[in-house]
Computed example of a mutant assay.
Amino acid sequence: MKGCEMFYDDLPRLTVFGDVADLGHYTPLPEDWVVGVSDIVGSTDAVAAGKYKTVNMIGAAVISAQINTAGGRAFPYVFGGDGAAFAHPPEFAAEAAQALGAVQAWAQAEFGMGLRVGLYSVADIRAAGLDVAVARYAVSEGVDYAMFAGGGVSWAEAQMKAGAETVPPVPAGTQPDLTGLSCRWSHMKARNGTILSLLLSPEDGVEPDRFGTVVEAVLAEVAHLERGGHPAPPEGPGTGWPPAGATLEAHASHGGRGVAARKRQVLFETLIAWILIKTGIKLGGFDPTHYRRTVGGNADFRKFDDGLKMTIDCDAGTVSRLRSVLEDARADGIARYGIHTQDEAMMTCIVPSIMDDTHVHFIDGAAGGYTQASVELKSG
């Protein structure tokens, strides 16, 4: 097996999204790696109360804390709306657990929201008869996202929700390092009529090739959409001032210095950014037009995480045809699915620096998105 740090670095980058349906493009994780998972308690109720931006922020915070703890080391992770998953080599398991615990404590202290967390070994996942395999899909020259297959991440999530606690609690007041976490962009209105959030998962015991055929059929139905249904316009998302997420960003980045003071700083920073983006004026090597366009290009509006997840901008005809494909797959016992429609998409970002093109952006529906789609998936 390859050295721990070289394993993920050496994986090839896929450039055609349709290739993620082919398990031949995935590589099993080393036996001694660990898989981390998280899930917000009561996320459906939080969405009903209008707190979906908070839900997304906490889900992205899990990834942000892991990125900052890793200190520039690449590792696989995936955003799921009200949670996230990731994997690390064994020598980083302790610090990964510490970062998970810190986000759990922060979510409770800042928002009064419970966060389930768990860290499980790949060896235990395989002993349960499942696997964790990964691929890397490049959305742009600067950014790629991990894709997960094998059922192991779903197994870990089930263990976590069943109460198999594996992450020790951290001292009260522990602050995670959420440097770069923000939500400054405006919601992206549907240009074709509907923002559709879709979850598609294989039924237990279904052969991967049969499920892959359904994924291919779904992707074929959206292939005619501009840029595959990307919710962000080609020029990038819009922005307003003051940004709706200023308070959330202040909760993420005050570092114990006080939310109010940090919010004033966020408002000042975003005012400058808003002026630059609106005018297109370059400042100190920062090109706002290039940055805005890159934001859209780097976003993860579709992914594979033991199943297909997409938030796309589409028309009513596409929604109808997708339902037909999905219903056939459910009737044939191949897959379960959940969908949720809304008028807008939203974006949560991790931007260590605005001076390069490696910033990452997580897209979800703005009125429930993946969380609401999962309700239908569970009841399927």
Rank of each mutant, 00 (worst) to 15 (best):
A217V: 01
A217W: 01
V218P: 06
V218Q: 05
V218E: 03
A220K: 12
A220G: 06
E221F: 02
V222H: 00
V222N: 00
V222A: 00
A223M: 01
A223C: 00
H224M: 02
H224L: 02
H224Y: 01
H224R: 06
L225C: 05
E226F: 01
E226A: 11
E226I: 04
R227N: 09
R227D: 14
R227A: 14
G228S: 01
G228F: 01
G229S: 02
G229W: 01
H230R: 12
P231K: 05
P231S: 03
P231E: 03
P231N: 04
A232S: 13
A232E: 00
A232Y: 02
A232T: 07
A232L: 02
A232P: 06
P233G: 10
P233F: 03
P234K: 06
P234L: 03
G236P: 04
G238I: 05
G238K: 05
G238M: 00
G238S: 04
G238Q: 03
G240F: 03
G240Y: 03
G240M: 04
W241N: 06
W241F: 14
W241G: 03
P242F: 04
P242W: 08
P243A: 13
A244C: 01
A244M: 08
A244I: 08
A244E: 13
A244R: 13
A244K: 13
G245A: 08
G245C: 08
G245H: 06
A246M: 04
T247L: 15
L248S: 11
A250Q: 10
H251S: 10
A252C: 15
A252G: 12
S253Q: 14
S253T: 15
S253C: 11
S253I: 10
S253Y: 01
H254M: 07
H254S: 05
H254I: 10
G255N: 15
G255I: 11
G255F: 10
G255T: 07
G256Q: 10
G256D: 09
G256Y: 11
G256R: 11
R257P: 03
R257D: 14
V259K: 14
V259C: 12
V259F: 10
A260T: 15
A260N: 14
A261E: 14
R262K: 15
R262D: 05
R262G: 05
R262Q: 15
K263E: 15
K263W: 11
K263G: 04
R264M: 14
R264Y: 11
V266K: 08
L267F: 10
L267Y: 11
F268M: 13
F268S: 15
E269H: 09
T270N: 14
L271Q: 12
I272C: 10
A273Y: 09
I275Q: 06
I275D: 01
I275V: 15
L276G: 06
L276D: 06
L276C: 08
I277D: 12
I277C: 04
I277L: 12
K278S: 13
T279C: 08
T279I: 07
T279E: 06
G280H: 10
G280L: 09
G280I: 05
G280K: 07
I281K: 11
K282C: 12
K282L: 03
K282V: 05
L283E: 07
L283S: 09
G284H: 06
G285A: 02
G285Y: 02
F286V: 04
